[in-house]
Design a binder for these strands. Structure first.
Length: 562
RNA sequence: GGCCCGGUGGUCAAGCGGCUAAGACACCGCCCUUUCACGGCGGUAACACGGGUUCGAUUCCCGUCCGGGUCACCA
């Protein structure tokens, strides 16, 4: 067969050569050891937790090595593309600290633009580049056109219909596919000319020369030594619209763009054979690969499943609404990514995670379960270390979007709100009341009159009259100017007066001797003032709320209970 | 079903031929405490199984089992 002729037939409009491309996209000039990595999402939806993973690794590796981290939009499947998804991706990634040096960026109008010398960074704009290499492969007899239509193929591939998967005769399936593939390979130039004249679309397939019985040794940076069977499948390089498949685009782009480390999910491992073959056909140097294990969730049968779009916690845009700050999520990701992160963080509590020396060798090979408990713990610690001012800013920013009514309360008197937020904050052992911003309202809502309500009720085992008696005495002696000790002494005096134990030890020794304890008296007052049985230090709370409102709340309760 | 990857407590995980098998989260108990939140102390709980190799296997090899991934003109 005259392959040059075939190439001209197939790609008459392509006049560029691979050499032209190499000249246009020369190797990058970077210091020794600098890594070039990328994140290459397809704009089909939101950023997935499972996508934040590899992108965090890629970002860390590039920036830690003074290399380049770029964004490439893999929009080769027009059918699945979602309007505006690429823009959303960029914004979401940015909130999680994923910033790109190069590639697709948002311009001032919010549109996707290119930044850097290796573009375009949208694959749909790179048709001629791919076709240049495609033409070359045809010339070399390494790729061929296939005029079999998608519909015809579908009939052969009932295997991929999920429902049929169990009843499939795999043996027969494989054989018929193999036969089909071999049949596709035999054609004449005349066949091609005829199809072309008839306007029939074709896909370009690789002419696979591998023997799956033969394994090639391969080293993955996270998984170590691997044995990859050679590829013998004539997979598609160019779809009938002239746009490449992932495999082909991966080879051409990562070569031309100078990617040194390909970081992607482990679902790509089975395709690795194809990529090795392609790079070899194209005469490209194979980049280093890291296949990151996936994040899992538990299904109803207790089995692990890969975290998918619909799962809780999958959509990165949801975390904000759930009240998690991006720092918390990033730190949680780090704990999963590098097992020694927590140890480092314990010693460097004040440093941002970006200073952590990220190490490929510390990455886990097996997929881990998403753990909200752990995320919560990380988040709680982060919030506890913030200053009252910082919490005020973040909380009000969050509330202004997700709970405007609450935001209005919080910002009505910033000094007041900050006083509340300062309770137990600072010092070695700060309180850890807030796991997420969502917790703030139930925790501190009672400080604001509109949210004050009796939610817990008074302690069990007491009559309303008991509560009223205690509250009335308290009101009679209450002086907002008292110190904490004076204040509590008065509470104790009330306890004694009403037959409650003022001393907890004495009460615990002989509970039957008393009506209750000073703890109960405190609880009565606490519920009256805060509406809850659990709250931060009562004296402090009353100081912040102020004498007038404290009295008003207690009086209202007395009237209510009478 | 073929191929590939994996298997240490409920979860995340240290471990790299010799240890009473770390630590963190979660859970439970005790202490502190007028409640809560912290903090302190302690506890329950693991090397999937069977064969090798070896003086000795969680660690190396093989098999079994289990789990995951993948088998498109999707990425």
């Amino acid at each position: 067969m005259d392959y040059n002729r075939l190439a001209e037939l197939l790609f008459p409009h392509i006049t560029t050569t691979p050499a032209d491309m190499e000249a246009k996209y020369p190797p990058r000039k970077l210091p020794e050891g600098a890594k070039v990595t990328r994140f290459a999402p397809s704009p089909t939806g939101f950023v997935h937790f499972g996508g934040l993973f590899p992108s965090t690794v890629a970002e860390r590796l590039a920036h830690q090595s003074k290399g380049v981290f770029y964004l490439r939009i893999e929009d080769t499947d027009a059918k699945r593309e979602v309007e505006g998804a690429a823009q959303g991706l960029i914004k979401t990634l940015a909130t999680y600290g994923i910033h790109f040096d190069e590639g697709a960026v948002l311009d001032e109008n919010g549109n996707i633009a290119d930044k850097g010398d290796y573009g375009p960074y949208k694959q749909s704009m790179r048709g001629p580049i791919y076709q240049t290499y495609a033409k070359q492969l045809v010339r070399e007899g390494k790729a061929y056109p296939c005029f079999t239509t998608e519909e015809e193929l579908d009939e052969l591939q009932q295997v991929n219909k999920k429902e049929a998967i169990k009843n499939t005769d795999w043996q027969a399936e494989a054989e018929s596919r193999r036969a089909e593939m071999l049949a596709r390979r035999s054609f004449t130039l005349e066949d091609v000319e005829e199809n072309l004249r008839a306007g029939n679309p074709f896909v370009l397939r690789i002419l696979a020369n591998g023997d799956p019985e033969k394994k090639t040794k391969f080293t993955d940076l996270v998984r170590g030594a691997l044995e990859i069977p050679e590829n013998d499948e004539d997979f598609v390089l160019l779809k009938s619209d002239g746009i490449p498949t992932y495999h082909f685009a991966h080879a051409v782009d990562d070569h031309l763009m100078g990617t040194t480390h390909v970081i992607r999910g482990e679902e790509w491992l089975p395709s690795l054979a194809k990529h090795i073959q392609l790079f070899s056909y194209l005469g490209f140097k194979l980049p280093k690969y890291m296949h990151i294990s996936q994040i899992m969730r538990l299904d109803e049968n207790g089995n692990k499943k890969k975290l998918s779009k619909r799962d809780m916690g999958a959509n990165m845009d949801d975390y904000t609404g759930m009240g998690y700050s991006p720092e918390a999520v990033c730190e949680y990701v780090m704990t999963l990514l590098n097992s020694n992160y927590e140890e480092w963080h314990a010693k460097n509590a004040d440093k941002p995670y970006t200073e952590f020396p990220f190490n490929i060798k510390k990455m886990s090979v097996s997929g881990c379960l998403f753990d909200f408990n752990k995320l919560g713990d990380v988040s709680k610690n982060i919030i506890s270390r913030m200053s009252a001012d910082t919490v005020y800013e973040k909380l009000t920013a969050w509330a202004s979007v997700f709970d405007p009514d609450f935001a209005a309360q919080l910002t009505a008197d910033p000094a007041y709100t900050k006083q509340i937020l300062a309770i137990g904050r600072g010092g070695k052992k700060p309180r850890k009341d807030l796991t997420t911003w969502v917790d703030a309202k139930p925790y501190m809502g009672f400080f604001f009159d509109p949210y004050y309500e009796i939610v817990d009720g008074y302690p069990q085992g007491f009559e309303n009259a008991d509560v009223v008696a205690a509250l009335e005495r308290f009101l009679a002696t209450y002086n907002a100017a008292d110190t904490m000790n004076e204040w509590f002494d008065k509470v104790k005096a009330i306890a004694t007066e009403l037959g409650y134990a003022a001393d907890m030890k004495a009460y615990k020794a002989n509970p039957a001797d008393f009506r209750g304890s000073v703890a109960d008296i405190s609880a009565f007052i606490r519920v009256a003032v805060t509406g809850k049985q659990n709250a931060p230090d009562l004296y402090t709370v009353m100081q912040i709320i102020g004498e007038e409102r404290t009295r008003a709340r207690i009086e209202a309760q007395i009237n209510n209970l009478k």
